[in-house]
Amino acid sequence: MELSMGLHLKGFIWPLLVLLPNLFLIFFAPHNIPKTVSPPLIFTVFERIGQVTCFTLPIVFGTKIAAQPINLLTGLMLICLLIYYLCWVRFFRSGREFSMLFKPLGFIPIPMALFPILYFILLAVWLNSYLFAIPAVLFAIGHFVTSWSTFSQIQ
């Protein structure tokens, strides 16, 4: 499928929806961050590369995003966001305890990692784009492994 480059407001909105709660950490840092948590470096690199590309590609290809019809995939993306936001509410209501960033949600392990991963994978599927899928997979691998590693280390 053809990808049309160009800025559009919708291209800024989709990644911003995931990034927004994270911005609160600038002013409201978590409490009780362990000093010894260290995920494997290669997965941190994958995570960072995936983050940068997952957040910039929608901006660069905003006109492509704006042309997409709203459908079941966008509904699933919004459900992922809603659950992700609920996890952020849980984190802030806990007094910003670091461990809450990794606490399972029922049977779902590390939901604050899984739902952004699902969101960006669904975005790639919605756009029918390998260009978006590759960074989403890199992000998924890196974010899942670093989050799982951190979760395991703080248990």
Rank of each mutant, 00 (worst) to 15 (best):
P21L: 08
I83W: 06
A136E: 10
L114N: 07
V45E: 00
P116Y: 06
F43Q: 00
G142C: 12
E97I: 02
L7P: 00
P109T: 08
L72H: 10
L3G: 10
T63A: 13
R93G: 09
L78V: 03
S94V: 04
P135K: 03
A113N: 11
S4W: 05
H8T: 03
L17W: 07
F115M: 12
A140R: 01
P40F: 06
F115V: 03
L7T: 00
V125G: 12
G50C: 09
I33W: 04
L78T: 07
N128G: 15
L57E: 01
P58W: 01
G142I: 02
L76H: 13
L122H: 06
N71G: 15
F28I: 03
V89I: 11
M1G: 15
L57A: 05
K64S: 15
T74K: 06
S147P: 00
F43P: 00
P40T: 04
P34M: 06
I70F: 12
Y119G: 07
C54V: 02
F139C: 07
Q153T: 03
L73F: 04
P104N: 14
P109I: 04
R93N: 13
F12G: 00
E97F: 00
L23V: 02
C87V: 02
R96T: 09
I59E: 00
L7K: 00
T36A: 14
G50H: 06
I26E: 12
I70C: 08
I26N: 14
F132K: 02
N128I: 00
I33E: 14
W148D: 12
P40W: 04
S4E: 14
V18A: 10
A113Q: 07
S147D: 08
L3W: 02
F98M: 10
P109V: 05
I117N: 09
R48L: 01
Y84S: 12
F107H: 14
L86W: 09
M5C: 10
S147A: 15
V89A: 15
A29Q: 13
L9W: 12
L23Q: 11
L16G: 15
R90C: 10
E2G: 05
F91I: 00
Y84I: 03
I59R: 00
F28P: 04
F120L: 03
I13D: 02
L7Q: 04
F98N: 09
A66D: 13
Y84N: 13
C80P: 09
L101S: 04
F28S: 15
A140P: 09
Q153R: 08
L20E: 15
S4L: 07
T146S: 05
I59N: 01
I117P: 14
F91P: 04
F132L: 12
S38Y: 05
I49H: 07
M1V: 05
F144I: 01
P111Q: 12
V89C: 12
